[in-house]
């Protein structure tokens, strides 16, 4: 067992001479990096015959990876705030032989948090957009805006706050997906570079919004977009919140560095009950207090 762990450590954390680092950066490190959240899902689920699994078996034939080892290496090794005993408890939980847990693109309880730069009434501001994958009855997929956060979206700073607060959350009726105005289902892979369409196609902004309950902040944002009060500048960073795992919340973020432990990695891990998860959706992601999510 100890020997196996040593081999694994050598596989994921081996240090290189300066001359080697240049080549590793281009080939080996690129292969080890967790490239996208899809790649993260594949490694987490220990999916067979992925590009990474085949790369490892081809180049490191002596290393027989286990699911637990692979998930362990999906944690940001530089973040010491995530406690080892919590990681071990998490690993035991998700790799349980009788009830293993998996995460997938089609899950309904994961969210992308986009930190964006915008111009609000021509002034530079920060805006956080919360997106999730939405599936239509026809089995089409798209990314949709489900919530928003910004200082200029705070209800208590607006003159019309009572209008928003006294009303129950607005629920957008289910509508068929527009064939033209949508965010690509693989938008996440390209750093959500098409999210500016939400702000550019003002008359079709509703087509980019999730079919379901809307928070007052999101309603305000939609109004501001329609009134041409906001110009989108760019996405600064992205993180993912995964709430599917029983009793846990994980936050996945991107770390680009010249190490094998790079790419999309778990940077936060919280034990959470069902009630705590519901509270997290409201407080951390600013979703309306509706059980629909």
């Amino acid at each position: 067992m100890r020997m196996m762990l040593c081999c694994l450590a050598a596989l994921f954390y081996s240090t290189k001479s300066t001359a080697q680092v240049k080549d590793d950066d281009f080939n080996i490190l690129f292969a080890f990096e967790v490239h996208t959240i899809d790649d993260f899902f594949e490694r987490f689920n220990f999916k067979d015959n992925t590009a990474f699994q085949n790369y490892v078996s081809k180049n490191y034939p002596g290393n027989n990876l286990t699911r637990s080892q692979l998930i362990h290496n999906l944690f940001n090794s530089k973040n010491l705030a995530v406690k080892k005993d919590e990681i071990n408890s998490f690993l035991t939980s998700v790799t349980d032989t009788a009830f293993p847990e998996f995460v997938n693109y089609r899950d309904t309880d994961w969210y992308a948090e986009l930190h964006c730069k915008v111009l609000y009434r021509n002034k530079p501001k920060k805006l956080t957009l919360i997106l999730k994958v939405e599936q239509s009855p026809q089995k089409f997929f798209r990314w949709s805006v489900v919530s928003a956060k910004a200082d200029f979206l705070r209800i208590n700073q607006t003159k019309d706050s009572l209008n928003y607060l006294q009303q129950p959350p607005y629920i957008k009726p289910d509508s068929t997906f527009s064939k033209k105005y949508f965010l690509s289902p693989v938008s996440h892979a390209l750093d959500f570079m098409d999210v500016d369409n939400v702000f550019l196609k003002k008359s079709h902004v509703d087509d980019y919004i999730y079919n379901g309950p809307q928070s007052p902040a999101l309603q305000k944002l939609i109004d501001q977009i329609k009134n041409s009060e906001i110009d989108f500048v760019e996405v600064i960073s992205v993180k993912y919140h995964l709430l599917k795992i029983h009793s846990w919340i994980i936050v996945v973020e991107y770390f680009l560095r010249n190490e094998k432990n790079s790419g999309w990695l778990i940077n936060k891990l919280f034990p959470a009950t069902r009630e705590q998860k519901e509270k997290y959706l409201i407080t951390a992601l600013n979703l309306p207090a509706m059980p629909t999510y």
């Binding site: 798209r142 289902p185 693989v186 892979a189």
Partner: peptide, 8 residues
Amino acid sequence: SDFILAPD
């Protein structure tokens, strides 16, 4: 990646 069906 895998291919995913979009609204188009």
